[in-house]
Amino acid sequence: MHISDGVLPVSVTIGGYIAGAALAAWSARRTESEELPKVAVVTAAFFVASLIHIPLGPTSAHLLMPGLAGALLGPVAFLAISLGLLLQTLLFQFGGLTALGANALMMGLPAVACGWIFQKFKGKTQVGHAIAGGVTGASGTAMAAIFLALLLATGGEDFFGVAKVALLAHVPVIIVEGVVSAFTIGFLFRVKPALLESSFVRHQKTVND
């Protein structure tokens, strides 16, 4: 879930913009500047994947995928996620223009952390990959939910109740996200293991040269 315009205190949104821009710049420096078009196209793929709805009893949830993005892209995931959020604001008004920085931090930091965890613990077998994928998928969403609650709580004690409800609402999504990530990573391990190397963009560069 993204934070809309007008919810957070202005100081938090501006701080989010500054921190988000600094991290995006760091993330962009992790790849060759000429290769950034690739990041852009990959972002589009994640964007489309995040539009898919999964039925959950009477309602449905869409995947957030900070975990998968981190596992597949590594540190570049922060840039890709910021870009994706900007596009969501442009196209659908999910999130908002003023809350963009805060939303990027909320989704991007867990993604980078997940990427690191995934590379550390994936092992060499398909089962190992799938388990690591499931754990990163679930923990990525969990971290994002905690971040969301903390950001909401910056609004003062009036927002504590909403923060709790938002955190609880993410529990089923965390489970679904973990299961789907495990299956997706397992699938990718069989079909195209090159995608699961430390960072797809960097890896492909060494292959091309």
Partner: peptide, 12 residues
Amino acid sequence: AYFLGMLFVRSF
């Protein structure tokens, strides 16, 4: 999940 995986493979 397989659908997503396939989408990623194709788009990458």
